[in-house]
Design a protein around this nucleic acid. Structure first.
Lengths: 141, 141
DNA sequence: CTCATACCGTTGCATATGCAACGAATGTGC
DNA sequence: GCACATTCGTTGCATATGCAACGGTATGAG
């Protein structure tokens, strides 16, 4: 039996990602009581202004039901507003409220700081990791 | 608002890992009807001979309840045997049955082939990615 | 020896997740 | 203009997941 799980790339990638997600999740959970899907939707809106549920779903690798529920939750908490699209009434336009913008301004530095810490841990291989993730994202598009 | 989710490392790592896991999961699901925890337990036993639930839990970043359920399922399917530990009767010794070994001999080449495909997609950055994952694993130990 | 404490694996339970179906709306072929 | 297929977001539901508590066992202090 020659197979070594410890040397299997998909496995190691999965473990590393889960651990890092968990570490960071504890940060924004403590700071704002957000779940992972909520954080992603919020952060995506911060970079994309006005988007539909479908736009987020496509980019974030999150089921649309999850995006929908996260958006509803964020709306109830006052961070996000939902409005109808002008010409296509199937679409919903999501955007941050002032309160949502304020929250992101509080969270962005924490995210930046966390990322910086990871980059430091990675050292010289950080750049190659970034390129590798780009390649994987493209191949799975 | 300057935060860019697309450039946020934890997020990109998580998306990439989820996509790859999903791709590979479809392979062993089709081949043997295994779930992700089952695959991990099986693969871990393939490299570690006799281990307890706790050993697996510690290495695989999987809740012990999940390991326990996966082990029970694998036992029912005849891939794994459970036996009592000689001196410490709290422990359970898990090991592959001949049927389990045969299954791993069938799956290992598929895993190898899949990994090879990923490495090809990654190109020259594959090595750096491996080193980066090593560093992350150490930091989170 | 005895009691308190810690550990192991299992199980119950509340929550999270993903798939499928649905109503509403739009687009398409004829 | 009209059926028919497709898309959007929501919701129902079955399953997966993670935490906490439990019974059983071992360990350590006194």
């Amino acid at each position: 039996m020659t197979f070594k799980l410890d040397e299997f790339l998909p496995y190691r990638l999965s473990v590393a990602a889960a651990q890092i997600s968990r570490r960071f999740a504890s940060i924004y959970a403590a700071e704002a009581g957000l779940t992972i899907p909520e954080w992603r939707v919020l952060a995506h809106l911060a970079q994309s202004a006005e988007v539909s549920v479908r736009d987020i779903q496509a980019r974030v690798n999150l089921d649309k039901s999850m995006v929908s529920r996260a958006a509803t939750q964020l709306e109830e908490e006052g961070y996000v507003s939902k409005s109808g699209h002008g010409t296509d009434r199937r679409l919903i336009v999501l955007q941050l409220t002032p309160k949502g913008i304020a929250l992101m301004q509080r969270l962005a530095p924490l995210a930046e700081q966390f990322q910086q810490q990871i980059l430091t841990e990675l050292g010289p291989d950080a750049e190659a990791l970034a390129r590798a993730l780009d390649r994987l994202a493209q191949k799975n598009a």
